[in-house]
């Protein structure tokens, strides 16, 4: 079942001198099994928007309905199980004595028995590419990248149908970044999980997602396929964003080789296009 957002507005610290409209009249529908990227400048309302999907924030006006459940309702347990959110720097929320216990926190809170929890913990840790030998370690002994994976495993163990990741790759090295996004994409493909990826890095959004939502000053500025969104480089730059670097390269190439395509957003596509062009020259 999809996420439906209707006329959603949200104001921070309403009624104080610090009052600030974070979201203004957002209308949005995300279908099952979509892979959506949300991009936007700092303070554009990306994080505020995704926190509405599981009722962590309640609309100031308008409504958010997920799987037919209104997030304004009192009982959010089911909603929280369906929508898993991985926050920025999720490794900062680890608290248990062992990795195992930390991953098991969510499933146990859902009311699963120990056997089912055990299966899920082991499944989750392997999904994020870590070995079971880590399960008995103290989370604080792990490396930064491992901690992040453990934290994400904690959310995956709840088997969410909708997975929201807020800047999951911030602070990771290039290797860790590709690996992490790789297994998220895998998850999306193999389990048909709806993935909503909030990121600053246009390259990653272009490479992994199938739909891009651009946020600007609390509103949706653009919404479409990556190719459609990244084509309009000028508009993106106007709101402080950019197209993937490879797109800029292709545009420069086009200036000297008019036959080459410049509506290209990933390195793979660029490689193909350039080889084709060279082949055609030979």
């Amino acid at each position: 079942m999809p996420i439906i957002v209707e006329n959603l507005s949200y104001t921070y610290m309403k009624g104080s001198p610090f009052e600030r409209a974070a979201l203004r009249n957002i209308n949005l529908k995300i279908d099952d099994g979509e892979y959506v990227g949300i991009i936007g400048h700092t303070g554009s309302g990306k994080s505020t928007l995704v926190q509405h999907f599981n009722g962590l924030l309640k609309p100031t006006s308008g409504r958010v309905v997920v799987n037919g459940m209104d997030t304004m309702s009192k009982n959010l347990r089911d909603l929280r199980r369906i929508v898993g959110i991985v926050f920025q720097y999720p490794e900062h929320q680890l608290f248990e004595e062992t990795v195992y216990k930390d991953i098991a926190f969510g499933p146990l809170k859902m009311g699963l028995d120990e056997k089912e929890t055990d299966t899920r913990v082991k499944e989750a840790i392997s999904k994020v590419g870590l070995g079971e030998e880590l399960l008995n370690k103290l989370p604080f002994e792990l490396s930064g990248g491992q901690k992040r994976r453990v934290a994400i495993a904690g959310v995956l163990a709840m088997k969410p149908e909708i997975l929201v990741l807020d800047e999951p790759i911030a602070g990771l090295d290039p290797g860790g970044r590709d690996e992490l996004l790789g297994f998220i994409t895998n998850l999306h493909k193999s389990m048909r999980v709806t993935v909503i990826l909030v990121s600053h890095r246009m390259e990653d959004i272009a490479r992994h997602t199938k739909r891009v939502i651009v946020m600007n000053r609390g509103m949706i500025e653009m919404d479409g396929k990556p190719a459609e969104v990244f084509r309009d480089v000028e508009r993106l730059e106007e709101i402080g964003l950019s197209a993937p670097q490879i797109t800029y390269l292709m545009r420069k190439l086009k200036a000297v080789m008019p036959e080459i395509r410049d509506d290209i957003y990933t390195v793979e596509e660029a490689k193909k296009e350039i080889s084709k062009y060279i082949g055609h020259l030979l």
Binding site: F87, Q93, F105
Partner: peptide, 13 residues
């Protein structure tokens, strides 16, 4: 607030 939210998202009550 951030940690409360993160744990609430994992079902903490």
């Amino acid at each position: 607030e951030k940690i409360i939210k993160a744990q609430a998202a994992r079902g903490a009550d």
